[in-house]
């Protein structure tokens, strides 16, 4: 019943006290919002919690949804704000954020079927550095690169979601990639 409805129609139904309509919105956007939170926060557990909180916050404030905005933009803003809240908490325990996922990453790569132990260790180190480099980007640069790489949005979709000019999105993405390049230059990457 809900599958044919646009996001905005589902929001209207949810405002009129039909929670299943909001369920459809969650189902449509959960993977993208989870991806956004993962890219912004770098950890599965925090991404999961942030996405959960984002959906709860969205449902709580659904009656304040502006009809002229897109539901995707609204959800993204709520999720980004939730991630920023988590980030602020992380700042007070920065060492924990940068160090405590090493073990989980190691486990992930031990289970990987390809590569020698040395390669696996190198890859683990490389991915850890990428995660840290992305995590160290300023928020406005981090969110555009996460939307591009994790959500695979087009420049125009990012511009619409963030309500920014297209040129600003491209400029931020360019700067983000350049800053990442500087941070990652010492990484052992294979150039074809």
């Amino acid at each position: 019943m809900f599958k044919e409805l646009a996001d905005e129609q589902l929001v209207e139904l949810a405002v009129r006290d039909d929670p299943e309509a909001f369920g459809e919105i969650v189902r449509r956007w959960e993977r993208k919002i989870f991806a956004l939170c993962f890219g912004m926060l770098g950890r599965e557990d925090e991404a999961r919690d942030a996405a959960q909180e984002a959906f709860i916050n969205a449902y709580r404030s659904i009656s304040r949804f502006r009809g002229d905005a897109k539901v995707s933009s609204w959800l993204h803003r709520i999720a980004v704000n939730q991630c920023l809240t988590v980030k602020r908490r992380q700042k007070s325990r920065a060492e924990e954020y940068l160090g405590d996922e090493d073990e989980a990453e190691s486990r992930m790569f031990v289970a990987s079927p390809t590569g020698s132990p040395k390669n696996i260790a190198e890859k683990g180190e490389r991915l850890k550095l990428v995660r840290q480099a992305v995590g160290a980007l300023p928020q406005e640069l981090r969110e555009v690169i996460v939307m591009k790489e994790f959500e695979e949005m087009t420049f125009q979709e990012i511009a619409d979601t963030l309500e920014l000019p297209l040129s600003t999105v491209k400029s931020r993405l360019y700067t983000a990639l350049k800053q990442l390049k500087m941070r990652l230059e010492r990484l052992p990457v294979e150039i074809v």
């Binding site: 959960e30 959960q52 959906f55 790489e149 350049k178 390049k181 990457v189």
Partner: peptide, 29 residues
Amino acid sequence: VSSLSASSLAVQEWRSEAFDPLATPRFTI
């Protein structure tokens, strides 16, 4: 192009290794 691609692919690799294998959590409201 090489410079921008290197950064982009590094992030893509992180995503494909660390995020793509994850199941979407069950969100409950």
